[in-house]
Design a protein around this nucleic acid. Structure first.
Lengths: 345, 345
DNA sequence: TTAGAAAACTAAATCGTTTAAGAAAGCAGC
DNA sequence: GCTGCTTTCTTAAACGATTTAGTTTTCTAA
């Protein structure tokens, strides 16, 4: 038996006032709108008494906003993104916003469709990890006046608020750390994604190795997760072809996880014999044996910056604001795997 | 410059027909409503021409549904839940639904608030991993006619669709496997959550051990993640107090991850010396050394069953349906850690 | 006493759909 | 020419809030 919830009109009728009055009181605009104190109190009491909850859909339709923020990432079940999402959810909750998570699968078409639907649902803002090919859709949102903040990656040729990691610096720091530990032949294992992100990391590594007068060893693996066995073979060949390697720098946590497995399969002592560091931290690095060093992205700070920008843009929707590109630094988390004294070579 | 999107009314005006006609055509009810073929075509062409997208908020207000499904779990960044969520998202997407993820933090008040807000937003259904104390809120939803499907845990004393793991059987299988491998002194490490879920796992262990004529060794740790160091100490004491232990069964993946770390800290050979199995699989078990055996929940099947029930309930919203309690079995994934021949004791 | 301002409230339009109910036009049959 | 059916469309009322533009009443001051 679906019993209808009372509407503003019902309430107005019961109290013998206009819906306008009830609405003003409901939204705390009583004083401002010169409703008398007694009436305000009478209405408030009644609202509390029946525990009135306004229909948010109706409100959205009228006001044009929804108190919903969309968080679009490559894959919501990815550890890094889900952690950031979790904090975003919390901050949003405190500001009375809800978060719609969704996965782009790095696919432009799917992303565009998502954006279209959410636009029609009048969401208040988008936080997007952009796949390639959605520049127009994003520009369209901007035209529309909808706040958009990019995360993790940029879109070239577009002025837009973003929160990014300083990948070059991070990569440089990680490489430098290995060099300081005395490693001389440092391999860099990356994936064939043409994103600035990965290119910057590569550049950071190359510059640092070059600067130290060392040789660079680069292995690029296919991004496609279905071709994991290919990757295994390539790593194996790479290691065999370069017996002089004393350390490995994995360009993403995704790679280091499967990479460690591969190394372990090749030779169960290999992991302990090489210096290892990973871009992106993982819960699991803490409990691997040896524990794995990493350059960790500042997850909490990223989420906070994203939400700071987002809430600011929502609030000042009609003002022209300066575009902010926030570049954050991560943190080198040194564990056993990158310390020369722990390696047995 | 926010340019207004055309509304049905605008379109009707341009085409010189009524909004009713446009609406009927838009929703594919043209034939049914006896609109002439020529007019249908004319309208359809125009809709396509201007790439019209209806305002979904307005539609929701009128129809009372939103094509949004809520997925409430303890923590959206938890690996297990986020994986299930990811598949739910995909299935929903194919059926033109979107998913709102949110975290309950196992807190009744927060959960109730979430439910309240989403109800006002007219979401079409709830998939909930229920924290204790939300029985009334759930019953309220049911009264309301809103589809609710529980996941992972039950609520006692309430008739409701649910998708659950057969925890007793799973625990029994895992224990049996250790026994078959020749382990005689099997410890069960669990958390002090009074949920059927955990109680069933405990019961499965106890019954199986008893049946085999073996002694039971049970360690219960506090659930609170903030007291991780307490847990470490307790594990250490427990191991010291029972030197005869030859294997450990961790009751959740959460425990086994921190447990492995602790074991490794106590003695770096301990992990290889004990038989180990975990309830719930983890990506990381595949790449630990040794690889860790687990009783894995059937993530994909669970998501599918959840969505099967949900979509069915949404479609047949007004029919009285039989309550379904789906009990699924997981899969024993045997890796190195639970094979007697790999342990060095 | 009265103009004018301030205070306290309200009527009604609006957001953009859906849909029940009704109307106009055409045609058959008597 | 009237009645009764179809066929084809339209009018207008929802849905439940917000908000603009009033209206009425009371107060103030000359």
């Amino acid at each position: 038996m679906k019993k209808k919830r009372p509407s503003l009109r019902d309430i107005a009728e019961v109290l013998n006032v206009s819906t306008t009055t009830v609405s003003f009181v409901l939204n705390g605009k009583g004083e401002e709108k010169k409703i008398s104190k007694q009436l305000i109190e009478r209405v408030e009491n009644y609202l509390k008494e029946i525990d009135y909850k306004p229909n948010l859909i109706a409100r959205s339709l009228r006001t044009g906003n929804s108190h919903i923020i969309v968080f679009m990432v490559e894959d919501v079940s990815n550890h890094f993104f889900s952690k950031v999402g979790r904090i975003i959810e919390d901050i949003s909750y405190k500001h009375d916003y809800r978060v719609l998570f969704c996965s782009t699968e790095n696919d432009a078409k799917r992303t565009r469709e998502h954006i279209e639907v959410f636009k029609e649902r009048q969401v208040d803002g988008f936080i997007i990890v952009p796949p390639p090919g959605i520049k127009e859709a994003v520009e369209d949102l901007q035209q529309n006046g909808t706040p958009v903040v990019l995360f993790d990656r940029k879109i070239e040729g577009i002025e837009i608020d973003s929160v990014l990691l300083n990948n070059y610096e991070g990569s440089r720091n990680a490489t430098l750390h290995l060099i300081e530990q005395g490693f001389k032949n440092i391999a860099f294992i990356t994936i064939d994604l043409n994103q600035n992100q990965m290119l910057d990391r590569l550049a950071g590594y190359r510059a640092t190795v070059k600067e130290a007068g060392l040789t660079e060893y680069i292995l690029t693996l296919p991004y496609d997760p279905d071709r994991a066995s290919d990757s295994r073979k390539k790593i194996q060949e790479f290691i065999a072809a370069h017996p002089q390697l004393d350390s490995i720098f994995f360009a993403t946590n995704y790679l280091s996880q499967s990479g460690l497995k591969t190394l372990h399969q090749i030779d169960s002592n290999l992991v302990s014999n090489l210096g290892i560091i990973s871009f992106d931290d993982s819960y699991f690095f803490e409990m691997y044996a040896p524990t794995i060093s990493a350059y960790a992205q500042p997850i909490e700070l990223m989420a906070k910056e994203l939400m700071r920008l987002m809430l600011d843009r929502i609030q000042k929707k009609n003002e022209a604001l300066n575009v902010e590109e926030v570049n954050l630094d991560g943190e080198l988390i040194i564990r056993e795997s990158s310390l020369k004294k722990y390696t047995r070579l």
